[in-house]
């Protein structure tokens, strides 16, 4: 097992009487890509929300790069280097593609009064640099997107929005990237394309760890080093794709439906 980056132990979350997570353990090593699968309502998104400080567990602990982040709110978690996408896209549709990417860059920007209001030379230089960064990142995913920086995100097609959202999460070079069902609403071809692009980004960032929630088993098979199957907020099983897909409990609970 590689160096521990993220360690979740015994995570439990309750909404009213429902157990959304029930004693979940997950270990993510540096540079690892993990596929997180499980039927709807099995707690995948809740798990992401717990890691990123949107939901607080009733029980259990999360450590990230050796630090206990269980009780940290979302903005503090972001500072530690965890970035995420949302299952229902949450781009700021009225704002430009560039502005959306710069939200991802928020923690690296100078928000001081001096630079922004009084002497704006620094702001100009920073803008120039950030536009370059944004274009370079978008170029991994599309040839046309780098030229559309100033267009409102709301004018993009679904797949381009997805790409921008992924770039927004990537732009600050996080240590851990959480992708919440990036293929939702896309065709299988588009999904495959997005995954290939992601892999070329990943190839240049060997230390970047990724946890991917995905329903498409082919995607899981092609990109993930390891699979974790959730059911009723619990870990049903864990292992390589072939191990997991052979597991009788998994086939009963989940894959049986998907294989057909």
């Amino acid at each position: 097992m590689s160096t521990a980056l993220l360690d979740a132990t015994g995570l439990s979350v309750r909404f009213g009487g429902v157990r959304a997570l029930d004693g979940l353990d997950l270990h993510v090593g540096e540079g690892e890509v993990i596929g997180l699968i499980g039927p709807n309502g099995s707690g995948k998104t809740t798990f992401f929300n717990t890691l990123t400080g949107f939901v607080f567990p009733a029980d259990g602990r999360v450590t990230f790069a050796g630090e206990d982040i269980t009780a940290l709110p979302a903005r503090e978690v972001a500072k530690r280097g965890i970035a995420r996408t949302f299952q229902r896209l949450r781009l700021l549709l009225e704002l430009s593609v560039f502005d959306n990417l710069m939200l991802g860059q928020h923690l690296s920007l100078d928000h001081g009064v001096w630079a922004n209001i009084v002497a704006r030379g620094g702001l100009r230089r920073s803008l120039e640099k950030q536009r370059e960064t944004a274009r370079a990142l978008l170029r991994y995913f599309s040839d046309s997107l780098p030229d559309r920086l100033s267009e409102p995100a709301g004018s993009l097609t679904m797949i381009d929005r997805r790409r921008v959202e992924v770039c927004r999460a990537l732009i600050r070079d996080p240590k851990l990237l959480l992708l919440d069902e990036p293929s939702a609403g896309m065709t299988p071809d588009e999904t495959r394309e997005l995954m290939q692009d992601l892999q070329s980004v990943k190839a240049e960032r060997p230390a970047l760890a990724v946890v991917l929630i995905e329903h498409d088993m082919e995607v899981i098979e092609s990109v993930s080093h390891r699979c974790v199957v959730l059911d009723y907020g619990r870990k049903l099983c864990e292992g390589s794709y072939s191990e997991v897909s052979q597991d009788p409990a998994v086939r009963r609970a989940y894959l049986g439906v998907e294989d057909e």
Partner: peptide, 24 residues
């Protein structure tokens, strides 16, 4: 027309999403 304006817009449009990127 600065990073401040962007942060303020983000608060108005989607404070929750913005907090995932460290915005207070």
């Amino acid at each position: 027309r600065s990073w401040m304006g962007l942060a303020l817009d983000a608060v108005r449009l989607d404070e929750t999403a913005a907090s995932a990127f460290g915005l207070n």
